[in-house]
């Protein structure tokens, strides 16, 4: 079974790299370019995990994260926050609003793939 990952990111080149890495790792990858689009995409088809940038146009990552957590139907979605801001405060805030992991840009592609995999696996184990 192929797990699906939604990449929410506005920087085209980062999206490109993420798509490549995740596809190589065997995920089905979809992309949303801003916060609003992200919600629409999730509504259309609930992904197993969301890679979420914080600095997004229209609706920031924290808000998207809260929206996902507010919907019980989406509680299984694993959320990994990607941030170019490395402040502790941001990490704490992300975890507080319901993120499962926090990855700072620039990231290691291998590490990223592993983390997504292990999170989804853990979720499946629980289920």
């Amino acid at each position: 079974m192929t797990h699906s990952v939604l990449v929410v990111e506005d920087e085209p080149n980062i999206v490109l790299s993420l798509k490549f890495v995740l596809k190589q790792a065997g995920f089905n990858v979809r992309v949303a370019e801003d916060g609003a689009q992200a919600i629409t995409e999730i509504e259309r088809d609930t992904p197993d995990a969301v890679l979420l940038d914080i600095m997004l146009p229209k609706r920031d990552g924290f808000s998207v994260c809260e929206a996902i957590r507010a919907n019980p139907a989406w509680s299984a979605i694993k959320i990994i926050v990607l941030s170019a801001r490395s402040r502790e405060a941001d990490k704490e805030k992300a975890l507080a609003v319901g993120a499962d992991d926090f990855i700072t840009k620039p990231f290691s592609t291998r590490d990223l793939g592993n983390r997504v995999k292990s999170l989804i696996a853990a979720g499946a184990g629980e289920a």
Partner: peptide, 27 residues
């Protein structure tokens, strides 16, 4: 500082990601 960090990290993220992808060669 946080904004500058963000602005610098964004291109750096792409650079690092693609560098790693390319150095793996595979696929």
């Amino acid at each position: 500082l946080s904004t500058i960090s963000h602005e610098l990290r964004t291109p750096l993220t792409s650079i690092r990601a693609f560098t790693e992808i390319l150095s793996n060669e595979a696929g």
